[in-house]
Amino acid sequence: VTTYKLVINGKTLKGETTTKAVDAETAEKAFKQYANDNGVDGVWTYDDATKTFTVTEMV
């Protein structure tokens, strides 16, 4: 189990959260659900070296 981080660069919501998951795919599903629940829709990137997902909403 690995800890993954999500950085949110939203128009109205900004911040970070973490989740523990067995792999990046599982973490991504959890983060996308979290973003969807919070009304964040944007471009996703993932950095495997730092285990960090970033979602950026276009203005």
Rank of each mutant, 00 (worst) to 15 (best):
V1Y: 13
V1I: 08
V1R: 07
V1S: 11
V1Q: 13
V1H: 12
T2N: 07
T2L: 12
T2I: 10
T2E: 15
T2Q: 08
T2V: 09
T2P: 15
T3N: 11
T3K: 08
T3D: 12
T3F: 07
Y4H: 02
Y4A: 00
Y4N: 00
Y4Q: 00
K5R: 07
K5T: 14
K5I: 11
K5Q: 05
K5H: 08
K5S: 05
K5G: 04
K5A: 04
K5Y: 06
L6Q: 01
L6M: 04
L6A: 03
L6N: 01
L6R: 00
L6K: 00
L6W: 02
L6T: 01
V7S: 04
V7T: 08
V7E: 05
V7Y: 15
V7P: 00
I8G: 02
I8A: 03
I8L: 10
I8F: 14
I8D: 01
I8S: 03
I8K: 01
N9C: 05
N9P: 03
N9T: 13
N9Y: 07
N9A: 12
N9G: 03
N9H: 06
N9Q: 09
N9K: 06
G10N: 10
G10T: 15
G10D: 04
G10I: 15
G10E: 03
K11M: 13
K11T: 14
K11G: 08
K11R: 14
T12I: 15
T12H: 14
T12E: 14
T12L: 15
T12N: 13
T12S: 15
T12A: 12
L13Q: 05
L13A: 04
K14N: 09
K14M: 08
K14H: 15
K14R: 12
G15N: 11
G15P: 15
G15F: 15
G15W: 15
G15C: 07
E16M: 03
E16K: 04
E16D: 05
T17Q: 14
T17A: 13
T17C: 08
T17M: 10
T17R: 15
T17F: 14
T17W: 15
T17L: 14
T17V: 14
T17D: 04
T17I: 12
T17K: 15
T18E: 14
T18A: 08
T18V: 10
T18K: 11
T18H: 08
T18C: 06
T18F: 11
T18Q: 07
T19K: 06
T19C: 05
T19M: 12
T19R: 07
T19S: 06
T19W: 07
T19N: 05
K20Y: 13
K20I: 13
K20H: 10
K20L: 10
K20S: 10
K20G: 07
K20T: 12
A21I: 03
A21K: 03
A21F: 06
A21E: 06
A21Y: 04
A21P: 01
A21N: 03
V22L: 06
V22S: 11
V22R: 15
V22Q: 14
V22T: 07
V22W: 08
D23W: 04
D23G: 04
D23C: 04
D23F: 04
A24N: 08
A24W: 12
A24R: 14
A24M: 11
A24Y: 10
A24V: 13
A24S: 07
A24C: 04
A24F: 11
A24G: 06
E25G: 11
E25N: 09
E25T: 09
E25Q: 12
E25I: 12
T26Q: 09
T26V: 07
T26D: 15
T26R: 07
T26E: 09
T26H: 13
T26P: 02
A27C: 02
A27Q: 01
A27I: 01
A27S: 02
A27L: 01
A27G: 02
A27H: 00
A27V: 03
A27T: 01
A27N: 00
E28N: 08
E28F: 12
E28L: 14
E28P: 00
E28W: 12
E28H: 15
E28D: 07
E28V: 06
K29H: 12
K29R: 12
K29W: 08
K29E: 11
K29T: 12
K29I: 13
A30Y: 10
A30F: 12
A30N: 13
A30C: 06
A30T: 10
A30L: 07
A30S: 15
F31Q: 00
F31W: 02
F31H: 02
F31L: 08
F31D: 00
F31K: 00
F31M: 03
F31R: 00
F31G: 00
K32G: 03
K32C: 04
K32M: 13
K32Q: 08
K32P: 00
K32W: 05
K32D: 02
K32E: 05
K32H: 10
Q33S: 13
Q33F: 07
Q33A: 11
Q33D: 10
Q33V: 10
Y34T: 03
Y34M: 06
Y34S: 02
Y34K: 03
Y34E: 03
Y34R: 02
Y34A: 03
Y34N: 02
A35E: 01
A35S: 08
A35W: 03
A35G: 04
A35N: 08
A35Q: 02
A35M: 07
A35I: 13
N36C: 08
N36M: 12
N36Y: 14
N36I: 12
N36R: 10
D37K: 06
D37V: 12
D37P: 02
D37F: 13
N38G: 06
N38M: 15
N38P: 01
N38I: 06
N38K: 15
G39V: 04
G39W: 07
G39L: 13
G39D: 14
G39Q: 12
G39N: 15
G39I: 04
V40E: 02
V40K: 02
V40W: 05
V40D: 01
D41H: 07
D41I: 11
D41N: 06
D41T: 11
G42F: 02
G42V: 01
G42N: 01
G42K: 01
G42P: 01
G42S: 01
V43M: 11
V43F: 14
V43C: 05
V43K: 09
V43W: 08
W44K: 00
W44M: 05
W44Q: 01
W44I: 03
W44C: 01
W44Y: 03
W44L: 03
T45V: 07
T45Y: 07
T45K: 08
Y46K: 01
Y46H: 02
Y46F: 06
Y46I: 02
Y46Q: 01
D47T: 06
D47M: 04
D47Q: 05
D47L: 05
D47R: 03
D47H: 06
D47I: 07
D48E: 14
D48M: 11
D48N: 13
D48L: 07
D48C: 04
A49W: 12
A49P: 09
A49C: 05
A49D: 09
A49N: 09
A49K: 09
T50C: 04
T50G: 07
T50F: 06
K51G: 05
K51V: 05
K51T: 04
K51A: 07
T52E: 06
T52K: 05
T52S: 07
T52P: 00
T52Q: 10
T52W: 02
T52M: 06
F53T: 01
F53Y: 06
F53H: 02
F53W: 11
F53P: 00
F53N: 00
F53Q: 00
T54H: 05
T54M: 06
T54S: 05
T54W: 11
T54Y: 05
T54A: 05
V55M: 07
V55F: 04
V55S: 02
V55N: 01
V55Q: 01
V55I: 06
V55P: 00
V55H: 01
T56L: 05
T56C: 04
T56H: 13
T56F: 06
T56E: 08
E57L: 03
E57H: 04
E57M: 03
E57C: 03
E57N: 03
E57A: 04
E57V: 05
E57Q: 05
M58Y: 15
M58W: 10
M58D: 11
M58F: 14
M58I: 13
M58P: 12
M58V: 11
M58G: 12
M58R: 09
M58S: 10
V59A: 12
V59N: 11
V59K: 05
V59L: 13
V59C: 05
V59P: 15
V59F: 06
V59Y: 11
